[in-house]
Amino acid sequence: MRLFDLRLIIAFLFGLYGVVLVVVGLGFTSDDDLKKAEGVNINLWAGIAMVVLAAVFAAWATLRPQFAKTATTTGDDLGKQG
């Protein structure tokens, strides 16, 4: 059983989402959009939060590479129980 590291997938997805939202928030936010969210540039702020989340997961995965238990399943586990 060798599983890939879920933390990197989380970092990838939210890194991508975060960058897209920051770009939308900075470059493509109309006054209507701002009015809808009570003057808050919610895309920008949510985007920044997602980039931070992605960075935290990426850092964690880099500093502590060990993720799932890599030992193969034992014969004992495979046998029929009961």
Binding site: M1, R2, L3, F4, F67, A68, K69, T70, A71, T72, T73, D77, L78
Partner: peptide
């Protein structure tokens, strides 16, 4: 995830390996 599946326990119980 398919690449990590080599037994029924891997498939049905993730090989009891998750944090």
């Amino acid at each position: 995830a398919r690449r990590s599946v080599s037994s029924s326990l891997d498939f049905l119980l993730s090989g009891r390996s998750l944090p």
